[in-house]
C-alpha cells in the first residue's frame, strides 16, 4: 500500500512494470515480431475499444454483464447472508442445515453447468443460477463464522447491561461479525466475475462473454482482448468497492486506521 508520505516517484513505482510491458508489447507488435492475429498491438486494442464504445456495443454488453453479475450477487449473496445469520444465531438450525450445506459447498459451481443447461436451457436463468450458487457459499460460511466468533465476553457484558435481544443483535453480534462478513463479500465479488465469464462464454446473446466469443468467430483478437481487459477492470472495481466498504464499516478496527 502506498502511503501518502512517500515521494511522488516512489508512489509511481508499482506502475513501472506494467508500463514497461506495454511498451515492449507495442514494440514487438509494431516490428512484426509477433503476429497481429496472435497479439494485436496495444494501440490497436485501444482503437478497437474506442470504436466499440462509440458504436455503443461495448457499453451495452458491459451493462448486460453488470446487471447479471449484480443480480446474481444479490440473490446468492443475500441468501448466503440470511442463512448464515440464521444458522449462526440458532443452534437448532445449524444442526439441521449445516452438514448439508457443507456437503453442497464441495461441489464446484461450474460442475453444475450441464445440469443447469438441462434445467434452464441457455436463458438468463442459467447464468444467474451459476453466479448465485457460486457467491452463496463464501458469504454463508463467513457470516456463520463471524456470528460464532463474536467475543462471548462482550455478549455477556451487553446482557448484564440490560440490552434486549434485538439490541444485542444490532449493537454487538452484527458489528462483531461484520469484518468476517466483509471477507465473504470480497471472496464473493471475485467469484462473481469468474463464474459470469464462464457462464457467458457457454451461451449468450449479449454480454461481454458473448462479445468476445463472437469476436473469436471473426478472428478479431483485438476485440477479444478488449473483453478480457474489461473483465479485469470490472473485477478490480468490485474489489475497490469491497475495500471501501471495509474501510468505512471497520474504521474502528486498528488495522483500518491510518
Amino acid at each position: 500500500m502506498a502511503s501518502p508520505s512517500l515521494p511522488r516517484w516512489q508512489r509511481l513505482t508499482p506502475w513501472l512494470p506494467p508500463l514497461a510491458l506495454l511498451i515492449l508489447w507495442q514494440v514487438l507488435a509494431q516490428t512484426g515480431f509477433i503476429s497481429v492475429r496472435i497479439l494485436p498491438s496495444p494501440a490497436s486494442v485501444a482503437q478497437a475499444a474506442w470504436e466499440l464504445t462509440l458504436s455503443g456495443e461495448l457499453p451495452y454488453h458491459v451493462l448486460v454483464s453488470t446487471q447479471r453479475a449484480l443480480l446474481g450477487f444479490a440473490i446468492g449473496g443475500g441468501a448466503g447472508l440470511l442463512l448464515g445469520l440464521a444458522t449462526g444465531s440458532f443452534r437448532q438450525l445449524e444442526t439441521l442445515l449445516d452438514t448439508s450445506l457443507q456437503m453442497l459447498r464441495n461441489i464446484p459451481p461450474l460442475a453444475l453447468i450441464p445440469l443447469v443447461i438441462l434445467w434452464f436451457g441457455i436463458d438468463e436463468g442459467a447464468k444467474l443460477f451459476i453466479v448465485s450458487i457460486g457467491v452463496f457459499f463464501p458469504l454463508y460460511l463467513n457470516t456463520f463464522h463471524g456470528i460464532r466468533s463474536v467475543d462471548p465476553g462482550l455478549i455477556e457484558m451487553a446482557k448484564s447491561y440490560g440490552l434486549s435481544r434485538w439490541a444485542l443483535y444490532r449493537e454487538v453480534i452484527l458489528p462483531g461479525a461484520l469484518s468476517s462478513i466483509l471477507v465473504g463479500v470480497r471472496f464473493s465479488l471475485g467469484l462473481m466475475w469468474v463464474l459470469l465469464i464462464v457462464a457467458e462464454t457457454i451461451s449468450a446473446n449479449a454480454g461481454i462473454g458473448y462479445m468476445t466469443m463472437n469476436a473469436r468467430e471473426f478472428l478479431r483478437t483485438d476485440v477479444v482482448l478488449v473483453g478480457i481487459l474489461v473483465y479485469a477492470l470490472l473485477g478490480k472495481l468490485a474489489d475497490l468497492i469491497a475495500r471501501a466498504l471495509e474501510r468505512f464499516w471497520l474504521r474502528w478496527h486498528p488495522a483500518y486506521q491510518s
Binding site: 465476553g153 462482550l154 457484558m157 451487553a158 449493537e171 454487538v172 458489528p175 462483531g176 461484520l178 471497520l250 474502528w252 478496527h253
Partner: peptide, 11 residues
Amino acid sequence: FQDSRLLPWKR
C-alpha cells in the same frame, strides 16, 4: 470486568 469489554466498534 477485568478486561474492559468495551465494544470496539463504538466510540
